[in-house]
Simulated assay, not measured.
Amino acid sequence: MARPVLLPVVGVVAAIYAASVAFVGAPQGAPRVSRVPARVSAEYLERLGPKDSDVPFDAGQATGPGASVEFKKRPSGILRYQPGQGGKGAMAMEIIPKSRYPGDPQGQAFASGVQSGWVVASINGQNMLTEDFGKIMDLLDDEVADPRFSKSTALALEKQGGRLAEPAAAPLAVQFNSIPGYVYKGAEMKEDGQDGFAR
């Protein structure tokens, strides 16, 4: 009489084991295949990647008026930077358009008057107009603008040999310059009740 009950129990146990292998991983001894994506997501590229509206620029031409700002904390509120020609220099592209409360780190750029289309001329007194874009991003270490250090892109960072510079000590004194005649054609940021800010 125990035999008919035993068969369904064995079937259930076998089904659970098969399901656990399928959902948890391969059996021991099987070769492991990495499923970590080597590239950034489509959502990241949409938010922070190059845009059709980006106008190529030469950072060496950033000789116009701008602003000297002090970022006391990170992130500064600049959501995206664009590299200049030859990968040199960095231009602020999308800036959170308000400060939500006194001392809001993500409102620092807006409160300091930084404008989209301005180029990072110096960080803590060090000239940035001829530096590699990656080095400038490493010095700024702005988590909103530079998520290259997330797990999904760690492999790409490892391939380039790691950081190009250690993050600059806060507070950061950043000089932004404008390019005479440059017209910013990117989207203006708008507040979105669900996601914060969007184009």
Rank of each mutant, 00 (worst) to 15 (best):
G125M: 09
G87P: 12
A154L: 15
I95M: 00
A111I: 02
I96E: 14
L140S: 00
D146H: 08
A154V: 10
D104G: 02
T153W: 14
M128C: 10
A121L: 07
Q108W: 03
S112G: 10
Q115F: 03
A145M: 05
D142F: 02
K151H: 12
A92Y: 09
A121I: 08
I123K: 01
P105Q: 01
A111Q: 13
L129M: 13
M137W: 05
L155R: 13
L139I: 04
Q108N: 06
A90T: 12
G134H: 11
S150L: 14
K98Q: 11
S99G: 09
K88F: 08
T130Y: 10
R148C: 05
S150H: 14
D141W: 15
A90Y: 13
F133E: 07
A92S: 08
M91F: 11
P102Q: 07
L139G: 01
E143I: 15
D142H: 05
S152R: 14
Q108F: 00
K88P: 10
P147R: 04
S99W: 07
G117H: 03
S122H: 11
Q108R: 01
K98R: 13
M137H: 01
W118K: 01
V114H: 05
M137R: 08
A109T: 03
R100C: 11
K151V: 12
D142S: 04
V119I: 12
S99Q: 15
A90V: 12
G134L: 13
K88N: 12
Q126D: 11
A121Y: 10
A90S: 10
M128S: 10
Q106E: 07
S150N: 13
M137S: 01
G117M: 02
L139T: 05
D132K: 15
A145V: 02
F110T: 00
A109P: 08
L139N: 01
D142N: 04
W118M: 07
Y101K: 10
G103W: 07
A154Y: 09
T153H: 09
M93V: 14
A109C: 06
P102S: 09
E131R: 10
P147S: 03
I95G: 00
V144M: 13
S116M: 02
K88R: 15
L140G: 02
E143Q: 14
S122M: 10
L139V: 04
W118Y: 05
F110E: 07
M91C: 11
T130K: 15
P105D: 00
W118P: 06
G107L: 04
I95F: 05
D104L: 02
G125S: 08
N127H: 04
M91H: 07
A111H: 10
R100Q: 13
Q108I: 02
Y101G: 08
R100H: 11
I136T: 06
G117W: 09
G125N: 07
Q115E: 06
A121D: 11
F149W: 15
A145E: 03
G89D: 09
V119A: 00
E131D: 13
G107W: 01
L139F: 03
G117R: 03
Q108C: 07
S99L: 06
Q106T: 12
L155P: 00
L155S: 09
E94W: 14
S112E: 09
G134T: 03
G87D: 12
M137I: 04
N124T: 07
D132S: 13
S152Y: 12
A92G: 06
F133R: 11
S122K: 10
S116N: 08
L140Y: 01
N127T: 00
I136R: 02
F149A: 06
N124F: 08
